[in-house]
């Protein structure tokens, strides 16, 4: 079952520490946003495999936007 990972804050994609096919644990940062002068990780809600990264570094995302999909 796949699950969309959504940004919980509006910001700019600062770093993408994972890529398609990576295994992640619950709480691991999937992407890192820059917002409010801080690096704010968007974490995997559960363990799984990254199926898709939907954003690129430097891209602005709104709160609630899907940034990645977890398998």
């Amino acid at each position: 079952m796949s699950e969309e990972i959504k940004a919980h804050i509006t910001g700019v994609v600062f770093q993408i520490p994972t890529k398609k096919g990576d295994k992640v644990g619950a709480g691991d940062p999937v992407i890192v946003l820059e917002s409010m002068k801080m690096e704010i990780p968007v974490e995997a809600p559960r363990a799984g495999v990254v199926r898709e990264i939907r954003v690129q570094e430097g891209q602005t995302v709104q709160e609630g936007d899907t940034v990645a999909v977890l398998d």
């Binding site: 804050i9 917002s35 801080m38």
Partner: peptide
């Protein structure tokens, strides 16, 4: 709490 929303 900087861990959440950078503390904003």
């Amino acid at each position: 709490q900087p861990m959440v929303l950078g503390g904003a």
